[in-house]
Amino acid sequence: MSETTTGGAARPSASSSASDALPGAAHEVRLVVNGEVHTLAVDPRATLLDTLRDRLGLTGAKKGCAHGSCGACTILVDGRRAVSCLMLAAACDGREITTIEGLATNGALHPVQQAFVDQDAFQCGYCTPGQIMSVAGLLAEGRARDDAAVRDELSGNICRCGAYPNILAAVRQVSGIEPTPAEIGADARLRDAAGGA
């Protein structure tokens, strides 16, 4: 784990007592991002998403709505899925954060990343980091029970290109979920894969 300290444009709070803080006073936080410790002075208004993107240069997490309505900014916080646009960086002191940049190891794609490529689970790619983090989170949370559960669990991540069936296929590839008979009957690729007519 390496330590870096990044100075901010905003002034660090002079007082250690939070109750004395003035509006706009910067707040110092320690974030563990993809295993690396960053100590930053942040504007209390700064969201975690903007901080990752504009302060740490981690632009993999995307801003699609800034209101938690699209999931493009999905990351893992302490191992669980979260939308970073609705988190104030100031409130993230000490949190362990994983972004899409932290998923691949030694240049090898994470199995979820590889499954997204294999199943063509995206077109434009903008929602993709959020989708992948959401899938990684749902697998870690043990929620990939069946197709119906996965569809619901991934409904916080909007894909306007409409890659949902391929995203579902990617989840099947990594989770081993078997498609239901109805799904097989309705999808030619699954019929072919099952060897049926």
Partner: peptide
């Protein structure tokens, strides 16, 4: 701009809220 205060006990939170009725409590933030 606003001042951000992280509190560790309920008494401090209550004191903030009682002093300034416009104070907002942040929990999940969603």
């Amino acid at each position: 701009p606003f001042a951000y205060h992280k509190v560790r006990d309920a008494e401090t939170a209550i004191a903030h809220g009682a002093r300034d009725p416009q104070t907002i409590f942040l929990a999940g933030g969603t």
